[in-house]
Computed example of a mutant assay.
Amino acid sequence: MTKEDFKNYFELLPRQAWLAEKEEQMISLISSCKNKTQKKLVFELLEDFRYVDYKLFIRYLEDIADYIINDSGFDINKTQIVGMVMDSNPDSSQWILQFLKPILTKKGWNNVKITTEFHRAVRKLNKDGLTNLILIDEFIGTGQSVDGRLNYLEEKANEDYVINAIFLAGMEDGISKVQNRFNDFRCLIPLKRGITDKYKSPEKEEAISQMLDLESQLLPIINKKKLTDYSFGYGKTEALYSSYGNAPNSLFPFFWWPYDIKETLRNSLLIRNEEGLGL
Rank of each mutant, 00 (worst) to 15 (best):
F118K: 01
G174Y: 07
N158P: 02
P102R: 06
E154V: 03
I140P: 05
K113V: 10
L188V: 04
E154N: 15
L150A: 02
N111T: 14
R193I: 06
L214G: 09
D197P: 08
G143M: 03
T131R: 03
L125T: 05
T115C: 08
L168E: 04
K101A: 08
G170M: 01
K192Q: 10
N223A: 04
E159C: 03
K200A: 10
D160P: 02
L191H: 04
S201I: 11
L130P: 00
T196C: 09
D160C: 02
K113E: 12
N151E: 15
L219T: 13
R123P: 03
P202K: 00
D137R: 02
F99D: 03
D147A: 08
T142R: 10
D213S: 12
V112W: 01
Q98S: 14
L219W: 13
L125W: 09
K127I: 07
Q217H: 14
K225I: 04
M171E: 13
V162N: 05
N110I: 09
R123M: 13
P202D: 05
I114K: 09
Y152L: 10
L212S: 14
E215N: 11
G170Q: 10
L191S: 02
N110M: 14
E154K: 15
G148F: 07
N158T: 09
S176M: 12
F185D: 07
D184R: 13
T196Q: 04
Q210H: 10
I166R: 05
A157W: 08
F182K: 12
N164G: 08
L130F: 09
L168C: 06
I136P: 06
E206A: 08
R120I: 11
I136A: 13
I195Q: 00
L130H: 07
F118V: 01
V122A: 00
T115I: 13
D160A: 06
D213A: 10
K106C: 08
L130D: 09
K177P: 13
P102D: 12
S216Q: 13
I222Y: 03
L188T: 13
A207H: 06
I166E: 10
A157F: 02
L212Q: 15
D213R: 00
N111M: 05
R149V: 01
Q98C: 01
G141S: 05
E215R: 00
N183M: 14
D184Q: 14
I175M: 15
G194Q: 05
K106F: 12
L188I: 11
I222S: 00
E203T: 13
N111G: 07
D197S: 11
L191M: 15
Q210F: 09
S216M: 01
K225T: 05
I136K: 09
E159W: 00
T116M: 01
I221F: 15
D213L: 09
Y161K: 04
Q217N: 13
P102W: 09
K106E: 15
V162C: 01
